[in-house]
């Protein structure tokens, strides 16, 4: 204020000056605010375009070419041939590749299993942590450990735990008499996907639990008391009070987790060496691009991965916006 009052007299002295300038050029306060807002947002937009928009456009571009990984500058446009092409009564391209569809199936299966298990266990943990007990703070901190461990480390760790001869998982199962001979968790195609799911659930349950816990703590305790007076038992209180009120936060957490799970790569790649039984769509794209040096096909696969993730995310957002309960509690 003091600064203002000091500069006021001189500007008052030249008061006619703005009028002397072209009257139309004086921007309104609203316009100036909008300008300042764009200036402030610009760095973020430029950065986003550089690291997300540009690579995406490049990938889209290459998906229509026959470029190879080592010579990306030599390419011919091949139209949609990388996606799907028919020649001599046979079909080619990513969409005609059975391995792609295997990867799609694997990815959807992985996503459905791991996210629903995460939601289930995350909810249990969140409800538990929402209760008052001694050592609550320690538990809340400790629960974050799996989330903090890098995925590569998680994969290696679980790789050892699942080891068919020295692994702790087989050891425990044998000791408890649940199995008679050690299981080949990683090598056995029917088991390897479960190994991946278990490792992923272990790693990401803390995230889900903390998201849900934050939502649970927003619910005032007197709502539960009112529900008790109204005669609601524990399950009814959960179903009719808790669940609708945490739904918006739950959907956001699910979007995060589903998008992460659809893009899964490193855990599977390290834990099961990208075997066909567990290959994900990201793994497929990588294989085309790096192992086979097929930049065009790899790009086409990447674009399909992107479209799939974006499409499912859009569905979730749509559900969130139009679901009755989600809409209400968000407001």
């Amino acid at each position: 204020m003091s600064h203002n009052s000091q500069t006021l007299p001189p500007s008052a002295a030249v008061a006619p000056a703005p009028a002397a300038r072209a009257p139309g050029r004086k921007r309104s306060l609203q316009q100036r605010r909008a300008r300042a807002a764009w200036l402030l947002v610009a760095p973020a937009l430029i950065l986003l375009f550089a690291v997300a928009g540009w690579p995406l456009l490049r990938t889209l571009f290459y998906s229509f070419t026959d470029a190879a990984m080592d010579t990306p500058e030599e390419y011919n446009f091949v139209g949609l041939a990388n996606y799907l092409d028919f020649a001599e009564g046979d079909s080619f391209g990513v969409l005609a590749d059975p391995l792609w569809w295997q990867a799609v199936g694997n990815t959807l299966w992985f996503t459905a299993c791991s996210v629903s298990l995460e939601l289930f266990f995350g909810m249990l943990l969140a409800l538990l942590m929402n209760e008052k007990f001694r050592g609550q703070g320690v538990v809340r901190a400790a629960i974050l450990v799996p989330w903090a461990i890098p995925t590569i480390v998680t994969a290696k760790m679980w790789g050892w735990m699942f080891h068919d001869q020295y692994g702790v998982v087989n050891d425990l199962l044998l000791r408890f008499g649940l199995i008679e001979t050690p299981l080949a968790w990683i090598a056995e195609p029917t088991l390897s996907m479960w190994a991946v799911v278990i490792a992923d659930v272990w790693k990401t349950v803390p995230f889900m639990a903390l998201m849900l816990l934050a939502a649970l703590q927003m619910i005032p305790s007197d709502l539960y008391e009112a529900a008790r007076v109204d005669g609601a038992n524990a399950w009814q209180r959960f179903r009719r009070i808790t669940l609708p009120l945490i739904m918006p936060a739950m959907i956001v957490a699910l979007i995060f987790r589903v998008m992460d799970a659809l893009r899964v790569f490193d855990l599977i790649y390290v834990l099961t060496s990208n075997s066909e039984a567990t290959i994900s769509i990201s793994g497929y794209a990588r294989e085309q691009m790096i192992s086979f040096q097929e930049m065009g096909v790899g790009s086409a696969a990447s674009v399909l991965v992107f479209m799939m993730v974006a499409g499912i995310a859009a569905c979730f957002l749509w559900i969130n916006r139009f679901s009755h309960e989600g809409k209400e509690a968000k407001e």
């Binding site: 005032p220 007197d222 709502l223 008391e225 009112a226 009070i241 609708p244 009120l245 209400e328 509690a329």
Partner: peptide, 11 residues
């Protein structure tokens, strides 16, 4: 019971 905060179910 009528609660001080009313405790109406917001949803």
């Amino acid at each position: 019971m009528v609660f001080q905060s009313y405790a109406l179910y917001p949803h």
